[in-house]
Design a protein around this nucleic acid. Structure first.
Lengths: 148, 148
DNA sequence: GTACTTGCAAAGATTTTGCTTCCAA
DNA sequence: TTGGAAGCAAAATCTTTGCAAGTAC
């Protein structure tokens, strides 16, 4: 199996600096919010939080920063089964991939880690000679609380 | 493990009729294209194919028909890692879920079936008491042809 | 100083909605 | 016949682009 490239555990800001990315006031703020966010943020939610601290920060800057982070593989982009519209959600990439379970009734998002998932990735890389850079697993259905 | 609800192997049209869905000329055509399509179609591509046979068919009807099929669980909605924009792709739902591998270099989409994937779904349902209605696995990376 | 980044406005892409007319059952 | 579906136009939602002014290194 391919050795998975690990994302540094250092804060995103340090990671970016070490990659030669210019750190602006705006990027510092956005990156800090993404890192400390409890849940999954979409671009507009991120923008709204950022504006509390920097009211001049433009929405476009949010999209550009997210694009930059995505290009560097430092955030994962999620759809969460499009529970509400076609927007995307972002989370800082951790060392271990996880599965998102989206309840179609209450909207709750759970995360799930599994060694089976790791094995599945290994199987894909081996059997198809496919080098996985990013993988997304999302399930929609009813969570334990929402069943009959 | 939960017993998976199986989609009938009958053509989509029959399936819809048996569910009491009104079959119009437009729906018959769209459903036939989706079923016989080789790859994964987005709404506009589906519309363009449909217009060849029925030039009056409106784009909105395509969106509404896809929404109806999705609601009935008869198609899967995919993003294919947003290789080209934010659109969605659709495929007729088969009895067995599969994983989509999207090559970020050449754009090729491969499908991958695995008993590990089935096991993983079982694990999720068991350990989280989560009743999976739809699940989507998409991996982005380099396919065998695009490495080295 | 210079190349990269931001803000602003505008455009682009995709999908949804309101309403009238039409048609399948 | 009658409730649901289609067509049309317009709007809503999410994201990207062009360009002038600003800023990190």
């Amino acid at each position: 199996m391919q050795v998975e490239k690990r994302v540094s555990r250092r804060p995103l800001e340090q990671e970016l600096v070490s990659r030669g990315v210019r750190m602006t006031r705006q990027r510092r703020l956005l990156v800090e919010i993404i890192q400390s966010a409890a849940g999954h943020l979409d671009a507009i939610a991120l923008w709204q939080r950022a504006k509390e601290q920097d009211p001049t920060l433009n929405k476009v800057t949010v999209y550009r920063t997210l694009g930059m982070l995505k290009k560097h593989g430092l955030v994962d982009e999620l759809d969460l089964m499009h529970l509400e519209g076609g927007k995307h959600y972002y989370e800082a990439k951790t060392t271990r991939d996880h599965i998102h379970l989206a309840c179609t009734k209450c909207g709750r998002i759970q995360e799930f880690e599994s060694s089976l998932f790791e094995k599945l990735k290994g199987q894909i890389e081996r059997e198809r000679q496919f080098r996985i850079k990013v993988v997304r697993v999302e399930a929609g259905g009813l969570c334990d609380r929402c069943q009959g």
